[in-house]
Write a protein that binds this DNA or RNA. Structure first.
Ligand SMILES: [Mn+2]
Ligand SMILES: [Mn+2]
Ligand SMILES: [Mn+2]
Ligand SMILES: [Mn+2]
Lengths: 142, 142
DNA sequence: TTTTAAAGTTAGTCAAGGCTAAATTGATTT
DNA sequence: AAATCAATTTAGCCTTGACTAACTTTAAAA
């Protein structure tokens, strides 16, 4: 109290939170394109019902989200048919899958239980900057 | 394609995402109680205007959020006066501040630039389980 | 003490991301 | 070919968390 804090920490906290809000706005998109890619790889196609089952949400929710992804150019879809990634979607999916794997591997490498790592990585991945990701990467291979 | 994936990963992905959605539902609350605590420590009281400035949102947004925090028992407030943490709020604030610090210190300890660590920690903190936090902690002091 | 400025509140709007319930479509059986 | 079942879509609702604009209250200056 009394005087101004004048300590070292960034006085511009607002930047930090603006970036955080940005990351949040991308999370669902990132998880969806990654999952759609997984489904195409594993099962040959991505159906709404499989997305709903894997995310643990209703079919209606998946439908809304897919419409948003389509609007934003990440997927294409036709009524009652399966879902495809656009180029843009595939690019994002690959980036997210790689990042996810690095985060997961890093957590396991420092001694986190694989089961716990799977939970934590799903959230952490969206908040890891390129720089931190590279640090994680080199920590794994050392 | 072809056969079932039968690999090791949890088939019950839905659990992972349910936990992720839970974490998201708590993020704003956690950042607010932590920041309110910081303001009380640094400036003697927590005013709306300071929260708005630090989070980079409008006064109206702060007002809404404070009402929700009050409804949920984390803070008390009277019109045109400053904001106080309840016992419940203080407990959460302390937990969040400690966790935030551990995450930040851990990132710096593995070689992430302090500036970047500040950005990343603000998001990562909300997705780190108790177990992972303990691993971070012992990694710092070693 | 009046005026003005800053802080806080209220009202109304919006998008994201959830839900349920009901309708529709497509695929599989009979 | 018809009936049935599963998948998908639509409609309508809700909360969170953001905004702007207008208003009210408190605090500071004149
Ligand atoms: Mn992921
Ligand atoms: Mn994720
Ligand atoms: Mn924090
Ligand atoms: Mn945070």
């Amino acid at each position: 109290m009394g005087d101004k804090p004048t300590l070292n920490p960034r006085h511009n906290k607002a930047e930090v939170f603006a970036r955080l809000r940005d990351a949040h706005a991308r999370e669902v998109t990132e998880d969806y394109v990654e999952m759609i890619g997984d489904l195409i790889n594993e099962e040959g196609e991505a159906r709404s019902v499989a997305l709903a089952e894997r995310f643990g949400v209703t079919a209606a929710t998946v439908n809304n989200t897919i419409k948003r992804l389509e609007r934003d150019g990440f997927v294409t879809s036709r009524p009652y048919r399966s879902i495809f990634l656009t180029e843009k979607g595939e690019t994002l999916a690959k980036k997210c899958r790689d990042r996810h794997q690095i985060v997961y591997n890093f957590l396991v490498s420092i001694g986190v239980d694989p089961d716990t790592a799977e939970f934590d990585a799903e959230g952490i991945e969206h908040h890891v900057s390129e720089e931190t990701l590279r640090v994680f990467e080199s920590a794994i291979s050392s």
